[in-house]
């Protein structure tokens, strides 16, 4: 069974991709994740200058959900140069560089520097819910802001495809996606974390996360991700590739994402639930499903739901 997918000219030997912010701070981590079967990896969000995150507790989980308010800490561009440079020396799988900034201008400036490191894709995080106190509503929550960031990055990205990472926490994700598409986006990552949510410690009567609230990920958010992927696919007429992300635990979850419109499958939180081998497991489960169902190439699954008359 051939699981490979070619997206915007880049071939992934299987469609699973490490999601941004999970086990993704160093080149050695990226290699380790690739060795565990990931078809591609995404860096943690990269800032131009050093950016402090939130104090602990930053990440908590139950069997259904994970909340995180890490606060996008990063050491800045020097470290990105060192780690991506190192990874490129012995590149096992495609690398997606995820960038973040506090202003439209700074998105452009960050992109200029990261493009020099020749990632396969740029992924633009305009949807982090954990820095709202610092910067206000994410850019992904307004058609105008999302489109402005897309333009700023596209103006400097050259041949590197630009994927905009969208937030599920909006009234109409489809209209945000169309605006980004008009501004030149080459694809989308759908979705970033949901909410934000909160968890309270009963005895101390305090929110557990130091940031009080945090973005929700893990198995519970999967149906929201499926709906968002379907909305984005429909609003862009299936023309732009989607990295479907959010709550994928199994091969069947991944197939569902493909049918909703994804070409690649982001996997993050599942690592906490199924271990590092989750990439390999998901691929095996996808293969098993495809073989049972007589599916020869997974590319034929992308957007499958939209081709069924009844679900249009």
């Amino acid at each position: 069974m051939n699981l490979s997918q070619t997206v915007r000219g880049v071939t992934f030997f299987n469609p699973t991709v490490l999601a941004s912010g999970i086990w993704g701070i160093t080149a050695s981590s990226w290699r380790r994740v690739a060795a565990n079967g990931a078809g591609g990896i995404t860096t943690k969000s990269l800032w131009l200058a050093e950016h402090k995150g939130h104090p602990n507790p930053t990440i908590i989980s139950t069997e259904h959900w994970t909340l995180n308010a890490v606060g996008v800490p990063d050491a800045g561009i020097e470290k990105a140069r060192e780690e991506i440079g190192d990874f490129n020396k012995k590149k096992l799988v495609p690398l997606i560089a995820n960038i973040i900034a506090n202003t439209v201008d700074n998105y452009g400036k960050t992109a200029v520097e990261i493009v020099k490191l020749k990632p396969d894709f740029l992924e633009v995080n305009i949807s982090c819910p954990n820095v709202e106190d610092e910067f206000g509503k994410p850019f992904a929550c307004s058609v105008r802001d999302a489109s402005a960031v897309t333009k700023a990055v596209k103006a400097v990205s050259g041949k590197i495809p630009v994927f905009i990472k969208l937030s599920p926490n909006v009234d109409d994700i489809g209209s945000i996606a169309s605006a980004c598409a008009e501004a030149g986006a080459d694809g989308f990552t759908v979705i970033n974390t949901v909410g934000p949510g909160m968890a309270i410690d009963l005895r101390s009567r305090r929110p557990i996360l130091a940031n009080k609230v945090g973005g929700m990920s893990g198995p519970a958010i999967k149906p929201i991700a499926v709906r968002c992927i379907a909305d984005v696919y429909r609003s862009t007429n299936g023309k732009l590739p989607i990295i479907g992300t959010g709550g994928v635990m199994t091969g069947e979850d991944a197939i569902e994402f493909l049918l909703a419109g994804a070409s690649l499958i982001g996997i993050g939180t599942a690592i906490a639930y199924r271990g590092a081998e989750v990439f390999r497991l998901v691929c095996e489960e996808m293969t098993a499903w495809c073989e049972t169902e007589g599916v020869k190439k997974i590319s034929e699954l992308t957007g499958g739901m939209h081709r069924e008359r009844a679900s249009r």
Partner: peptide, 18 residues
């Protein structure tokens, strides 16, 4: 940070193990 393998902050070079 997390203590259970998600954040990747405790990773060591060159193995990438947490």
């Amino acid at each position: 940070k997390c203590g259970y393998g998600l954040c990747g902050n405790c990773v060591v070079d060159p193995l990438g193990i947490r």
